[in-house]
Design a protein around this nucleic acid. Sequence first.
DNA 1: ACGTGTTTATAAAGAC
DNA 2: GTCTTTATAAACACGT
Length: 368
Amino acid sequence: MNSGLSMNSMSYMSAPGMTGTGHMNAHYVNPVGVNHSMPAGLSHSPAGAMVQAGPAGISGLGAALQPSMSAISPPPYGNMPVMSPIYGQACGGIRSREPKPYRRSYTHAKPPYSYISLITMAIQQSGCKMLTLNEIYQWITDLFPFYRQNQQRWQNSIRHSLSFNDCFIKVPRLPDKPGKGSFWALHPDSGNMFENGCYLRRQKRFKTGKHPGTGEKEAGKSGSEGGSVSTRSDSPHSPPSSSSPQSSEVKVDLKPHRVELMPSSPVRVPSPLAHTQHLFSHQPHPLLLHEAAHLKPDHYPHYPHHYSFNHPFSINNLMSEPQHHKLDYGGYGCPVSGALVAKTGLDPGAHTDTSYYRGVYTRPIMNS
DNA sequence: ACGTGTTTATAAAGAC
DNA sequence: GTCTTTATAAACACGT
């Protein structure tokens, strides 16, 4: 496998669309006029401040990233732009980018990432490590022009991926924070899905422990098996163990990938997740600082966020900002998005293209 | 009405 | 060749 490695040689790295400098110095623009309106959740987020922190926002973002993300190993595909704080309204990010004219006319080929990896990247780059569906859409469209087309098609796939894959967990909004849709986060134990560097296809699909016997897809996530990556025991083709009725006593939906936060009531922490608590202890997730206020972290101490894979091709590294670690991919330098620049006014050079895709690339190994 | 979320089905490609 | 993973489509339910 390691097909991912071969992606390093993807031609798009040196695609024509790339600026000579190999940096993200093209104005990022939103050709489709991505609606930057703030998703509901954000509006009440106190954080405008946080994002406004401009520079802080950047560094803050870095801080928000896993240590490993800042650590750095060269991103395989050129640096992926780091998500601007504007994403992740949950954290109070503000999204207000002035639309700039789209200047590129190059063809937008499909990025070499699976929807799952795109979702993972989006979530991981959000300060709170959780995004709403709409934010995920926006992150993707902002970064990959390709996805500015046929939105109905891929968005349906995104929704399907979120629901279907156990690696994504749904975090409900709090009553006092109305808005459409829940937040989506990564399952705490799904962190190494792309450890092998292949973003198109995981080695194994992350599956929460499922209890065949009980039919409970998840409670299983429990403990020991929690986060276990199992070869599909419940592939879409194989009959699900059954839709198990939720235990009436628990406040946490133990279904495979859904975590229900019941703000007002204590939740029973699924053991599988519980064992990850220590992770939170030494690196409080932004969510805990911001959204947390609403989500009551106390009730959800195990919130996902510890993706500490340092593999050179790990998704984290792919998203790492490190200009100083930039390799000669001839490509994307600073990941700091133009969006951020626009938003914070930090515009480093007035030439920042958040869009990863600035040229045509050919798919690596996996030819389609 | 529309967005979101779930589920089922099918096809294709990748991995073993 | 078989199994797994991903992509896509579509139907449906539900909430805003």
